[in-house]
Design a protein around this nucleic acid. Sequence first.
DNA 1: ACTATTTTTTAGGTTTGTCTAAAAATTTGA
DNA 2: TCAAATTTTTAGACAAACCTAAAAAATAGT
Lengths: 241, 241
Amino acid sequence: MSKNLINWLENLLLWGIIIKLKAMTSFTEENYLKIIYMLTEQNGGNEVSTNELAEITQTKAASVSDMLRKLAEKNLINYRKYQGVTLTKEGQQIALSVIRKHRLWEVFLVDKLGFGWDEIHDIAEQLEHIDSKELTEKLDKFLGSPQFDPHGDPIPDSKGKMPSMASCKLSEVPIDQTVVMVGVLVHSPAFLQHLDKNHITLGSTIKIQEVSEFDKSFTVLLNNNQSVFVSNEVAKNLLVK
Amino acid sequence: MSKNLINWLENLLLWGIIIKLKAMTSFTEENYLKIIYMLTEQNGGNEVSTNELAEITQTKAASVSDMLRKLAEKNLINYRKYQGVTLTKEGQQIALSVIRKHRLWEVFLVDKLGFGWDEIHDIAEQLEHIDSKELTEKLDKFLGSPQFDPHGDPIPDSKGKMPSMASCKLSEVPIDQTVVMVGVLVHSPAFLQHLDKNHITLGSTIKIQEVSEFDKSFTVLLNNNQSVFVSNEVAKNLLVK
DNA sequence: ACTATTTTTTAGGTTTGTCTAAAAATTTGA
DNA sequence: TCAAATTTTTAGACAAACCTAAAAAATAGT
Ligand SMILES: [Mn+2]
Ligand SMILES: [Mn+2]
Ligand SMILES: [Mn+2]
Ligand SMILES: [Mn+2]
């Protein structure tokens, strides 16, 4: 009985079939892991709830429950029923590799192909699942091993280490100070196009000239000497240094 | 009854749901269309059989039958039971777009990232399914609108038109003639690495010095003045001009 | 503390793309 | 030409990833 099982396993090993148990995270599973990673960050390391995941994956809570059971079976997440989830070491590794690929491809699309930063998300959403370590590393070299993507988001290195950079929201900067734009907290085309229209881009120098008492909107001076108006809603989503 | 149906369809249209009937060719469907295109070419325009498809897709004939029924329903293939299939205009368009993407990505991998021509097929097999017209056209520009891929295969333009080039097999070239290597008929890493080892690459000048009576093997002189031995098996799979 | 509400899970189904086994059609060849 | 071999299709199942409806657990409000 048990001897039979061992024989059978040996046979599988011989034929290299055991690999399947190791490899194999589907497109869908990768997306869940990536989203769990990002929501955990946002929650300051706290568990992510089923409903949060359902909302962001555009599916129903029931479907999320199914997937969580499956990911837990594969030891990619820590899952206690009704208590939400966090990633295991292994799950985190996969999530970081997907994020690395996503952001490297975004750099490629903007720097090499000339896309605007508002046009690249959906394409990168597909490219992030291309499975080839050699490709990722060669792409990284080709792009000059960038540390940040076109939105200012950090690109993890091949071991999963994130470059860090102190930054704060423009909305928190006091009057008269001069800062540099280093990132955005919202990636919607509408928001990015709004920034384009106001000539605010990654690397722009921003001097805060005036802050309205009434609505906390800003008037700022850019490096091109243009003075532009920035609503508080926008200022809250701009990262500066 | 029929009025009810029309009402229902109008409702769908109103909500933009009808789009789904038009768009949507899955990864798997795209692969079938591409393979049908290539096998039809190979067969000189004749129908492709279920078993041929089963062989090359690494599935069972029963699964192929299922898929053919489905592709026929979508008007992507001409299918008469037991008689094999050919592509419709629409199916051919999709096939050519997949082939275009495959070959453009191969150029990218070799020219820009420095991969060898024997390492790129599996990666291109994934990249060919990335869905973005703008991406394909920008990639094409970035690469300088190449006409041929790293294996010498023609790259269809955005309308599906293949560049043509007269060529013949090295095995058919008479003694003493000098030709240029322009393509391979086999893409296996083993074959490509064999050519690398013998310094035969796309663009190599080849002068036929000697043809053996016995086994039809060749001794040829390359542009680097090296004299190398080429078996008939290899000569039959080398395209020259 | 104990309902009422919200969140999450379970139960039962669907679709896509695969499989094996068996039936049907076609082709081969004596 | 017609029986045997081959090819192709049909029938019936399964896993993955989704759904709706209903049940169960957790949380909140008085
Ligand atoms: Mn994705
Ligand atoms: Mn980004
Ligand atoms: Mn493919
Ligand atoms: Mn090729």
